[in-house]
Amino acid sequence: MSKTWFITGTSAGLGRLLTERLLARGDRVAATVRRLDALDDLAATYGDRLWVAKLDVTDTAAVRTVTDRAFADLGRIDVIVSNAGYGVLGAAEEACDEQIRHVIDTNLVGSISLIRAAIPHLRNQRGGRVLQISSEGGQIAYPGFSLYHAAKWGIEGFVEAMAKELQPFGITLTLVEPGPTATHFKAGVVRPSRMAVYDGTPADDVRRSIDSGAFAVTGDAGKVVDRMIEMIDAGATPLRLTLGASAFDGIHAALRQRLAALEAQKDIAYSVERDR
């Protein structure tokens, strides 16, 4: 049975690829873009199965308006995909206040706004799915990507809590956590002005690794999209969907390290309990 999807950030990358594959198999897609002509080729091929709206997710009022209009025009929407986002590469000190606010407004506040806008509609139709595109960077952290991680770790906490809040209404949420994947992500990365004091530091090492191509990007974007679609088709509802060897291995190692550090502090943690 065909489904109807609402996807943000469909001009390129995973959002574009997901839109293409869903349309090709007969689903309907409500796609948001920042340039209305970005999907003209798909509109010419798929006609009214593609609904397109211009949206900058940093505009909270517009997020609600566009979401309301999509449900009004299309009726039931089965899957919401919060995909719009980008990265900032550089030490936190190098970024200006505007860069900090914009990446948080896009990756974190924009995602929160979309999910909140969709909730009344999903509740009224007695169910639905929300896929929040996160990354391995929602559970591990690289120097030089602190602002990106701040947003991704933030949205992971939000979604985990929301999943519990919305469970009584038949609404399920999944955090999709790909590792480094061959998309156009690098082209959209914002780079603050470099500070010489960070030359040769871990943040600079990561930057140089990415620029030189030494940073391994092994994920296949097509396979990432396929696994997402297969999960929805199967009716599976994991809180997290980890995709890629790098993501699995990196998150696995980070969780083991955090658990070991926590267990080493058990006596200290228990020592602050009130005397009974």
Rank of each mutant, 00 (worst) to 15 (best):
D59P: 06
G26C: 04
G110P: 15
D40C: 08
R207P: 00
E136H: 04
S2T: 15
D199K: 12
V130Y: 00
Q99H: 12
A234Q: 10
V103Q: 14
M162L: 15
P168A: 00
R21N: 14
E136K: 01
P192I: 13
Y142S: 12
L74C: 07
D73R: 11
G219R: 09
A236C: 02
I229T: 08
A269R: 12
M162I: 02
G87C: 09
E273P: 00
I100G: 15
Q265E: 15
A43I: 07
D48T: 08
V176D: 00
I229E: 04
T8M: 06
Y142N: 11
E136S: 13
R28F: 07
R64D: 09
G26E: 09
F145N: 05
V52S: 11
E136W: 06
I80R: 05
D249K: 04
Y198G: 06
G222C: 02
I251V: 14
R49D: 13
L74W: 01
R64N: 10
I104Y: 03
T242F: 01
P178T: 02
L17E: 15
T183I: 06
I104S: 04
V206F: 14
T201C: 02
S146R: 03
G85Q: 02
L241V: 09
R16H: 15
A260R: 13
T183P: 14
D211P: 01
Y46Q: 10
T172G: 03
R208N: 13
V190Q: 11
A92P: 00
T32L: 04
S113I: 06
I171T: 04
T218R: 11
T65L: 05
A95E: 12
I133D: 02
H102V: 12
S246M: 07
Y198P: 07
A264D: 13
L55V: 10
G213W: 05
D204W: 14
S11H: 05
D56Y: 06
S111T: 15
T172D: 11
S82P: 04
A203L: 03
G154S: 09
S11C: 06
V224K: 02
L131Y: 07
D48Q: 09
I7V: 15
A253P: 05
T58I: 05
R28C: 14
A117F: 11
R123W: 01
Q257L: 09
L17A: 06
R28M: 09
L122N: 08
G15N: 12
I115M: 14
H121T: 04
D105M: 07
I229A: 09
G244W: 06
